[in-house]
């Protein structure tokens, strides 16, 4: 499969109330690496199995949540082409200069009617640690903490989910891998730009611009169990898990960062091909779709967001 256009999630910029505690959480516990700290205080982190400069940006603020979620595209020409398509769809596009985040080229950005800011960029410098490319070992620096291999996707909560689906399909060439339809309409969508079961997901929610979680990928189900041990050992606030999703089939545990932003670490999930039919769920089996073992939603999953 030739990958063109939007390649994959690039970075999430997340607001935190306490930077020092947040760095312990994302670096020591989730297992990320510090890349650099910007002159404005934003901190840039990456996972050990990622080549690109960074995949998580932490910004100190007086309230939690997500500033932006960004995708990397294949070329500068793609950036220009997507800019025209986004504008034609009706969202004003703004430009962020190269270097506004260290290691990244120019970005374009816009705000969805769900209230979320999405950005695209074509260039990222490489940074260390990164995978070896000649006679490569399985890792360059041994995994620590939960051993996150990459920032994988996010789930966002906001209104106007039908339009968000339409936009990602028509303008960014995403495919809908899975969806939940309730008697009163579309509730949730999992969308892919490549061969993962999801690169971004949305759930219908009255308040715009909310973050449900940022997710990090682990190597195995055993690593999800190890993450559970770390969560208890360090008194991290847990939401649910270890468990499994019916939707995407991922093996998962959800917990909260020191500012209340939800994080997920997960393993597995099916391979999505661009000609795969969309998998659908209805109200009768939604519990199994979200939490395959519990077969019911917990109170927090649909209501607790930052």
């Amino acid at each position: 499969m030739a990958m063109t256009g939007v390649l994959r999630p690039g970075f999430a910029q997340v607001r935190v109330l306490d930077m020092e505690k947040s760095l312990d959480h994302y670096i020591k516990r989730i297992g990320m690496h510090h890349v650099t700290t910007g002159t404005d205080g934003r901190v840039y982190l990456k996972c050990g199995d990622e080549f690109d400069h960074h995949s998580l940006v932490l910004r100190k603020a007086d309230h939690a949540g997500i500033d932006a979620f960004a995708f990397k595209v294949a070329s500068e020409a793609d950036l220009d082409s997507f800019e025209k398509r986004v504008i034609a769809y009706g969202y004003p596009v703004d430009h962020v200069a190269a270097g506004e985040q260290p290691g990244l080229g120019r970005r374009i950005g816009w705000t969805l009617s769900s209230g979320h800011r999405i950005e695209l960029y074509a260039h990222a410098d490489l940074s260390d640690p990164k995978p070896m490319i000649h006679n490569p070992d399985v890792w360059t620096v041994e995994p620590h903490g939960m051993g996150a291999r990459r920032m994988d996707h996010c789930l966002l909560y906001g209104p106007d989910i039908e339009k968000t689906l339409d936009f990602f399909e028509k303008v960014l060439d995403f495919k809908c891998a899975e969806r939940v339809d309730m008697p009163d309409g579309l509730l949730a969508i999992w969308m892919s730009c490549g061969m993962k079961a999801h690169d971004i997901a949305f759930v219908k929610h009255p308040e715009p611009g909310k973050l449900h979680h940022v997710s990090f990928e682990l190597e195995s189900w055993a690593d999800v169990g190890h993450a559970g041990d770390i969560i208890t050992r360090y008194d991290i606030s847990v939401d649910i898990g270890p468990t499994r999703h019916g939707i995407t089939r991922g093996q998962t545990i959800y917990f909260f960062d020191p500012s209340g932003n939800r994080c997920e670490v997960f393993a597995g999930g099916y391979t999505y091909y661009p000609d795969s039919p969309t998998r659908t769920w209805d109200e009768t089996q939604i519990g199994k779709g979200i939490f395959y073992y519990e077969r019911q939603l917990n109170a927090a999953f649909l209501s607790v967001v930052t």
């Binding site: 109330l17 606030s237 500012s259 209340g260 209501s303």
Partner: peptide, 14 residues
Amino acid sequence: YRLPVGCRRGGCGV
């Protein structure tokens, strides 16, 4: 009712 419990870290407001 069940006590409202969210993130337990000052972020979600529940």
